[in-house]
Simulated scan of single mutants.
Amino acid sequence: MTRRKGKLAFIVKDSARKATYRKRKKGLMKKVDELSTLWGIEACAIIYSPFEPQPVIWPSPSWVQRALERLKTMPELELSKKMVNQETLMKQMILKVKDQVMNQRKENREKEMDLHMYRCINARKVLPNMNMNDLNDLAWVIDQNLKEVDRELEKNE
């Protein structure tokens, strides 16, 4: 059984808020450790909390300090190479969805022409209400199917 997503709201009761903080902090630290181990990357976490006087630093303060120094000394081009803002991310997502829509339209058109082809074969005539584009697409689908049949025949010979 899957866990339900809890609603995100401020927890009024102090003891419940503190308990939830401890559980989520533990889970976050585990995730950072898993990311670091599984992908072989350098990862760290710094968590400030009203419940603790000092921030929680994972894996160690000296390690985090070295990682931050390496980050500060990286060239600007290297830092910004893979960074994207919200607008760029949305544009990338829109382009990806547009490509998916175009591919789906092409696939749907091919299936529609397959259907027309089989209907024409069964009726032994061209169906009415087909315009020139439909007939051209139908001819292309028939050619593709004939090529596929030829390939299969050559493979079996």
Rank of each mutant, 00 (worst) to 15 (best):
residue 69 E to S: 06
residue 58 W to Y: 12
residue 37 T to G: 02
residue 24 R to T: 02
residue 135 L to A: 04
residue 52 E to Y: 08
residue 132 M to T: 07
residue 50 P to N: 11
residue 76 E to D: 14
residue 101 V to W: 13
residue 96 K to R: 15
residue 48 Y to K: 15
residue 106 K to F: 03
residue 87 E to Y: 14
residue 133 N to T: 09
residue 77 L to A: 14
residue 27 G to H: 05
residue 97 V to C: 15
residue 44 C to W: 02
residue 71 L to F: 14
residue 99 D to V: 04
residue 48 Y to S: 13
residue 73 T to I: 10
residue 151 R to E: 14
residue 52 E to R: 03
residue 89 L to C: 05
residue 122 N to Q: 12
residue 98 K to V: 14
residue 121 I to D: 00
residue 10 F to G: 06
residue 19 A to K: 13
residue 114 D to T: 07
residue 16 A to C: 03
residue 156 N to I: 07
residue 74 M to E: 15
residue 54 Q to W: 06
residue 73 T to Y: 03
residue 81 K to E: 15
residue 58 W to I: 01
residue 113 M to G: 04
residue 11 I to G: 02
residue 138 L to N: 04
residue 91 K to V: 00
residue 59 P to Q: 11
residue 94 I to R: 09
residue 52 E to C: 08
residue 142 I to D: 00
residue 14 D to T: 04
residue 19 A to M: 11
residue 75 P to G: 13
residue 154 E to V: 06
residue 140 W to P: 00
residue 69 E to P: 02
residue 117 M to F: 06
residue 41 I to D: 01
residue 42 E to P: 02
residue 17 R to T: 06
residue 79 L to Q: 03
residue 76 E to I: 06
residue 108 N to Q: 14
residue 8 L to I: 07
residue 55 P to L: 08
residue 150 D to H: 10
residue 17 R to G: 01
residue 84 V to F: 04
residue 61 P to G: 07
residue 45 A to L: 15
residue 16 A to E: 10
residue 147 K to G: 10
residue 56 V to Y: 11
residue 38 L to T: 12
residue 149 V to L: 13
residue 53 P to V: 12
residue 1 M to Y: 13
residue 57 I to M: 05
residue 122 N to D: 09
residue 68 L to C: 03
residue 43 A to N: 02
residue 94 I to S: 07
residue 42 E to I: 00
residue 95 L to G: 08
residue 32 V to K: 03
residue 1 M to W: 12
residue 154 E to F: 06
residue 92 Q to I: 03
residue 45 A to P: 08
residue 132 M to W: 01
residue 30 K to H: 14
residue 9 A to R: 10
residue 6 G to P: 01
residue 45 A to V: 13
residue 33 D to C: 01
residue 6 G to W: 01
residue 140 W to A: 10
residue 23 K to D: 14
residue 5 K to G: 08
residue 40 G to H: 00
residue 49 S to M: 03
residue 55 P to C: 06
residue 121 I to S: 06
residue 89 L to W: 06
residue 38 L to I: 12
residue 44 C to R: 00
residue 46 I to Y: 11
residue 155 K to P: 02
residue 3 R to W: 07
residue 100 Q to K: 11
residue 51 F to G: 00
residue 126 V to K: 09
residue 115 L to F: 10
residue 26 K to Y: 09
residue 73 T to D: 12
residue 68 L to D: 01
residue 70 R to E: 02
residue 43 A to D: 05
residue 20 T to A: 13
residue 113 M to F: 05
residue 123 A to I: 05
residue 148 E to K: 15
residue 20 T to N: 12
residue 7 K to N: 03
